[in-house]
Amino acid sequence: MTSYVLRRLTTALVMLWVVGTIVFSVLLIVPGDPAELLLTTGGADASTDAVENLRKKMGLDRPVAEQYVSFLADTARFDFGDSLIDGTPISETIALRLPRTLELIAVSMVVALALAIPAGTYAGLNAGKRFDRAASAVNALFTSIPGFVSGTLFIYLFAQVLRILPAGGYVAFAQDPWMHVQMLILPTVTVALHLMTIIFRMTRASVLEMRAHDWVRTGIAKGLRRRQVVRRHILRNALGPVITVVGLQLGILLGSTVLVEFVYNWPGLSGFLVSSVQQRDYPSVRAVILTVAAIFIAINFLVEVAYSLLDPRIRLT
């Protein structure tokens, strides 16, 4: 077990390093001068002065090896440098905004898990029956609605037509808890809906697969109660694949909440990211991406460890 965890941990650290290196080297492999590239907008050439200035700011004038080493060292200290736009330290901005994004994701995940796992299990156990057909059809529809579409429609419906919820924005919890919660509702529902479609689908498929295994028949033949068979011999086994998907989705969510946050003006990482991209503030974009990728890798690591606790066979591989 310990050796399995250590092996996974090593893999995770290596991945982290590879991701950092890739993000670093993207600037080197783009054709032409990166500084010039970043300053070119719509065909207008940048002045030589500005380019020179940017090169200095981003340290592009130093030898590559030196850049690489100091990039790794800085990143390890969570020092991402200063924003090219307003000169504020990027790590401060991230420290301020990341928790808001994580809050949104965490609340949505809890909601989605609480609803989708029971629904998926029930549908899987009664595949082909009425509930399953209905749930699967609804699921297929919601799968096809991108988050920013449902977000926009929810704003129209709940904020504009019904006027029961705010259309967006953010108030710190400490400042006004009730308002904070109200403003959290629509973004949460939007993100959770998307998550639910995925978790539902996966749970259903996993239950459907597990219930056809021979050991389920053994459980029934032993005279276990139906409930016991479902819990111990179907759900427990189905959980592994489900948490893997949940972990993967958490990572992907870190990215796709960008859109939802944008729709609802939720000042998480997204606003920062989108404005940085629009203004081509490469160091900021790079910092956000590194942060998210690091969280993603950490989640994957935790998922693998959790899976190995659920299924002893995993530890062998």
Binding site: G251, G255, S256, L259, L273, I289, V292, A293, F296
Partner: peptide, 8 residues
């Protein structure tokens, strides 16, 4: 796969 698609 480590990069959420939109971010990449």
């Amino acid at each position: 796969l480590c990069f959420p698609p939109i971010l990449l």
